[in-house]
Amino acid sequence: MATRQDIHYTTPGLSREQAERVIGLLQSRLHAMNDLHLTLKHVHWNVVGPHFIAVHEMIDPQVDAVRGFADDLAERIATLGGSPKGTPGSIVEERTWDDYSLGRAGTQEHLGALDLVYRGVVGSYRDGIAELDDLDLVTQDMFIGQTEQLELFHWFIRAHLEDQGGRLSTAGAKDEQDAARAAGRA
């Protein structure tokens, strides 16, 4: 979780305490977006198999968009008087999730693992949206816009994991390895 930081000013209409909490929410999403764009690039480099080119080419636009989300989040932190942290050490120290666990693997295995990654990212954004309802509607609007795009990317991933009846091969998976195995068997 993001540590408290000293702010020297904030935007009109927000108290110092509100700004500190909003900055904390923004910082946790900044860490998540920096981690996600690196994870997506890792998948891009390590995916193999019969559907390689489709997945390889699907991932890069997601990487670009997520990098843009990180920049927007960092700039909002600065706007509110905070200092965005984007160093690898701060991500590792403050994140609440484990590092991505797959290396070179087939398309379905990576997509299965990414399903769980996106579930976590989208869920944390939605938690932030709910909390921001009483804190800062401007930041909430940013979270909503980014969530809409992340949900779309998640759908792109999940479309590869569904059968014609709508059953998801990763249903019930507890971790990335479990999701990867389930997707690989389907």
Results as ranks from 00 to 15, higher is better:
T87R: 03
L152W: 14
H37S: 04
G166W: 12
T96G: 15
G81L: 08
L80K: 06
T3Y: 12
L137N: 14
K174H: 13
G184C: 10
D175H: 15
V22N: 01
R167M: 14
V22H: 02
G49V: 01
L38T: 00
A130T: 14
E131D: 08
G128W: 04
D133L: 14
F153Q: 01
W155G: 01
V47W: 02
I59G: 02
G13S: 07
A2V: 05
L73K: 02
S124P: 06
N46V: 04
G86T: 01
G103K: 09
N46D: 05
K174P: 10
I59R: 02
R181V: 12
I77N: 00
T3L: 14
H37I: 00
L111W: 07
F153E: 01
W97N: 11
G112N: 07
H31L: 11
L137S: 14
P12K: 10
Q164M: 14
M33E: 12
L30A: 01
A105F: 02
M1Q: 13
E162A: 13
R4S: 15
W97C: 11
A159M: 15
Q146G: 03
V122N: 01
E17W: 09
G123C: 03
E75G: 04
G184A: 11
H154A: 09
G81Q: 06
V66N: 02
G172H: 11
A113P: 10
A105D: 05
W155E: 04
T107H: 11
I59L: 07
G166T: 09
I157K: 05
D175V: 12
L73N: 00
M33H: 13
A65Y: 10
E162Q: 15
H51F: 13
Q108V: 12
K174F: 10
R185I: 08
A171P: 12
Q18P: 08
V43M: 01
E20G: 09
P61Y: 04
T96P: 10
I23V: 07
M58I: 07
E57I: 07
R104G: 15
Q18C: 09
G165I: 12
A173V: 10
A105G: 05
R67Y: 11
V138P: 05
R29S: 09
G68L: 03
N34S: 07
M1T: 13
R95F: 08
A159F: 13
R16L: 13
E131W: 08
V138H: 09
D141V: 06
R21E: 08
A70P: 05
Q108I: 09
R67G: 03
G49A: 07
S101D: 15
F69Q: 01
S28I: 14
R21C: 05
E20N: 11
L36E: 00
A171Q: 15
M1K: 14
A171F: 15
P84S: 05
A105R: 01
E148I: 07
Y125C: 03
Q146R: 04
R104W: 15
G128F: 05
P50W: 13
A179L: 11
Q140M: 09
M58E: 05
